[in-house]
Amino acid sequence: MSTDILLFGLAGVLVNAAPIIFAVMGETISERAGVINLSMNGTILLAAMAGFVVSVETNSLVAGFLVGAIVGALVAAVVAFSSITLKVSQVAVGFVLAITCRDLSYFLGNPYMGDVGPRLGLAPIPFLSELPIVGTLLFRHDIMTYLSFILIFLAWGYIFRTRPGLMLQGIGERPAAAFVRGANVNRLRYLYVIIGGTLIGLAGPMYSLSVKAGWKGTISGLDGIGWIALAITIFGGWNPLRAALGAYLFAVLQWLGLALQPLLPGIPSQVLQVAPFPLMILTLLLVNIGDTEWVARMLASLPESGRHIVERILRALRAKPPASLGVPFESD
């Protein structure tokens, strides 16, 4: 009995993490190309609202997801134009878009608040879903959750195992070198920022048409997801596999927060829901602290044997951003 609860709980974790996986993969690709898409929090909300409204109006899930993807691509196009062509601060534009798209989603979605819309159904995979344990865990989900599994490996394989993927790393690390090698750095950056934005946009309808079906305005519980996804991207060290691990860890924490609530009646539910944030700060601290000067000095003063262990742990946790992240490229 209790193993069943655990199994369904973990299966739920995989479903809840799916939109975050999409967003984090999108952001990872964009940042690998050297452009921070800070608008993510607003993009997800706007795409969630637009996807929901369109699928309510057309009664078509496909149309909803399509619109979500388009919204993501359009917002990313604004980020790309302002930061690549106009060289405006990526942080400034991204932040303004994050806030504006959020407010826009609340404003435009207002008439549809509380409406009942279509919902993405389960698509158990024949035979595989009958398998004990693994069947329930992996093969009884909706199609977007399956796609999230595939996306992780697709993104990883593309970035690290293909030639264009190598070029993607190049335009984020050393754009000048990539340019000399014949890459049209700015055009490629446009391309990857918009592809990344499309993936981020898909996370929206994944919420409003599946994971948290419906649109409830400010109480949809989606505000903040985008910021978490940004932190997970950093935690993931711009590597899809490690980023996916971060997304699943986050979903496990969310689930534990809900599961533990009956055991801790004194703590209001809102407090447990924010439990991941202190942990997010802590992980960012662990990821970055190895690079600070005082840690290096402290390490040097440690005895030989202890130093090696600490150094190894810090090195395993450390994540270095693409060298030219946030830096505009000029060919002349």
């Binding site: 800070l38 942080v91 903040g224 910021w227 940004l230 932190a231 950093i234 809102q270 407090v271 924010v274 944030f277 202190p278 997010m280 700060i281 960012l284 601290l285 970055n288 602290i289 690079d291 600070t292 005082w294």
Partner: peptide
């Protein structure tokens, strides 16, 4: 300054903690 955590992410996290 001491943890190498970008003030944008540290600040955002602390906002949610303050709400809590």
């Amino acid at each position: 300054t001491f943890g190498g955590v970008n003030e944008i992410f540290g600040g955002l996290g602390l906002n949610f903690v303050a709400t809590a």
